[in-house]
């Protein structure tokens, strides 16, 4: 490993495989590399079986800045040498990692997924905020479990009598056992959820969304709204952009999503070319100038973010 072989060692290694004259082999090896070099400058391209391709590639002139002085200067157009190894050579070199294959990872927690998806899309400040929100949501869902553990031990402190203390102790033990059982059981049930089809995930959660937005008295169902326009989603475009365009605030993408639920399985991943129905805005619900309607939309947004980040 990590030995540096020189031309002499190469000659030696060739000699091991056949019984040729050492001098002949050496002249051959020198000729070999001399010809590669000559061919490069004559034709800018040379292909050798089992080894690879060498070629000269032009690098266009470009502007640069001297790092120390800050002075602008131009890097002149020049050539560079490119080597593309032959498939055979590549396979031999990659032997140690040969057995590894690209693995699809969608059963993993969402945080990494978000990091992976976002680089594809222009990252706006809002996105960063969203991510932060998501993270906090994540933490919050974990906390109740932790609290359950911590709160039960509190009661023993006020000592009213041995009997009471004993009862409390038994109750705590029961609670802990139930909690432990729940914990050991829950991973199985949790594992099943992501495996289920996305559709089944959406169905149970949507009523919950409506309920929580119930503090706002109106029950909103954008799918019944009149259609303002049907848009074909372009590459790189997102619901938030459409919402900005048609309703004047990104937050209202939730209503576009709700109106197109049958089309969109996951608002984070919509196929380009999907036909999106933009519902006509009901000024009572969608009003960029009304902080209340923005707030309601934001609540929905956090819900969906949490839902689809699982």
């Amino acid at each position: 490993m990590n030995n540096k072989f020189l031309l002499q060692d190469l000659v030696q290694s060739i000699l091991e495989t056949n019984d040729l004259d050492k001098k002949e082999v050496e002249t051959f090896v020198r000729a070999y590399f001399a010809v590669i070099e000559r061919a490069l400058f004559e034709e800018e391209y040379i292909k050798i079986n089992d080894l690879g391709k060498f070629s000269l590639q032009k690098v266009e002139a470009r502007k640069s800045v001297n790092v120390t002085t800050g002075e602008a200067f131009e890097i002149k157009a020049h050539y560079k040498l490119a080597f593309v190894p032959d498939v055979k050579l590549r396979e031999i070199a990659n032997k140690p990692f040969e057995h590894l294959e690209a693995v699809e990872l969608d059963a993993e927690p969402e945080l990494t997924q978000d990091e992976a998806i976002n680089p594809n899309k222009p990252i706006t400040k809002e996105d960063n905020i969203m991510e932060k929100k998501e993270k906090t949501v994540f933490v919050v869902t974990d906390k109740p479990a932790a609290n359950e553990k911590k709160t039960p031990p509190a009661p023993p402190k006020p000592k009213k009598g041995k009997l009471v203390a004993w009862i409390v102790f038994v109750v705590i033990m029961c609670a802990l056992i139930i909690f432990a059982l729940y914990k050991t059981l829950s991973p199985d049930t949790k594992v099943q959820l992501p495996v289920d089809d996305v559709v089944t995930e959406i169905e149970p959660t949507t009523p919950a969304v409506e309920e929580t937005s119930a503090p706002a008295p109106k029950v909103v169902d954008p799918s019944s709204w009149e259609t303002l326009k049907v848009v074909r989603l372009e590459r790189g475009k997102r619901l938030t952009l459409l919402a900005q365009e048609y309703y004047g605030n990104k937050v209202f993408w939730v209503y576009i999503y709700e109106a197109n639920k049958d089309q969109i399985k996951n608002p984070n991943k919509i196929l380009a070319g999907t036909k999106i129905r933009i519902p006509k805005a009901d000024p009572a619900v969608i009003n960029a100038k009304d902080p209340e309607s923005v707030r309601i939309a934001q609540e929905k947004e956090t819900k969906y973010r949490a839902q689809f980040s699982k």
Partner: peptide, 14 residues
């Protein structure tokens, strides 16, 4: 939108 873990590899370079 599918994510893949591309495994490490050894590449001959010149």
């Amino acid at each position: 939108g599918k994510r893949f873990m591309i495994p490490p590899k050894l590449l001959p370079v010149f």
